[in-house]
Write a protein that binds this DNA or RNA. Structure first.
Length: 196
DNA sequence: TCCCCGATTAACT
DNA sequence: GTTAATCGGGGAG
């Protein structure tokens, strides 16, 4: 629990799990995230509490799902503290288990692309607005986060965020250096980069 | 109410 | 490299 900028890199290497019908479980390592803060003009919470973003202002550890371009759902982890409006966008994952269940939702493309990009990640995991607000630490639920292995700092790259205008200079995108499961995006900033 | 446009993707040329 | 698809939030009138 804390500001999204601090929690975001700590989510890398953890595992997102999803239960489908028949107790089939899909899992993916989180390899790319972005932080969004309340004083951040790119964040949905920037203009305060609304119907859409209410979950962002609620309990940390819950899932905030929104629809983008009228087409794609995007998954975020609320990082709290409650009432602040901080969240981390899950941008990409490395599929581990249940790839066949993911392929049901995404029949096209290669396995490395199943969870590559926020819209694809959500689609592969069968997540839409109906899961907005669920508790991500309830392993009896439909979707949750498992501990996984935290990423060593040297393996974390930092860059500006993808696809935004306002707040575009903030280096709040974090991803696993060298991973083929990371979406294409801005190059890592020199200051934050360490040698491969 | 109307209107514009976005934390994107896939299918084009 | 360009663009259609497709929805709802939220600012303007």
């Amino acid at each position: 629990v804390g500001p999204a900028v601090r929690e975001a890199p700590r989510l890398l290497g953890r595992v997102l799990a999803r239960r489908f019908a028949g107790d089939r479980i899909a899992r993916a390592r989180i390899v790319e995230v972005e932080a969004y803060e309340p004083d951040d003009p790119a964040s949905h919470s920037f203009r305060g509490l609304t119907g859409r973003n209410a979950v962002m202002f609620g309990d940390p550890g819950h899932l905030y799902v929104y629809l983008i371009y009228g087409v794609h759902s995007c998954m975020n982890v609320v990082t709290g503290p409650e009432g602040t409006g901080s969240a981390v966008l899950l941008r990409a994952g490395e599929p581990l288990d249940g790839l066949d269940a993911m392929r049901v939702r995404r029949p096209r493309g290669r396995d490395r692309d199943l969870c590559r990009g926020p819209g694809r990640f959500a689609q592969a995991f069968g997540v839409d607005r109906s899961l907005d607000g669920v508790d991500l630490f309830d392993e009896e639920g439909e979707i949750w986060i498992e501990p996984g292995r935290p990423l060593a700092p040297a393996r974390i790259a930092v860059s500006t965020r993808v696809g935004i205008r306002r707040g575009a200079d903030r280096p709040w995108r974090f991803y696993e250096r060298g991973s083929p499961f990371v979406s294409r995006g801005p190059a890592a900033s020199p200051s934050a980069a360490s040698r491969p």
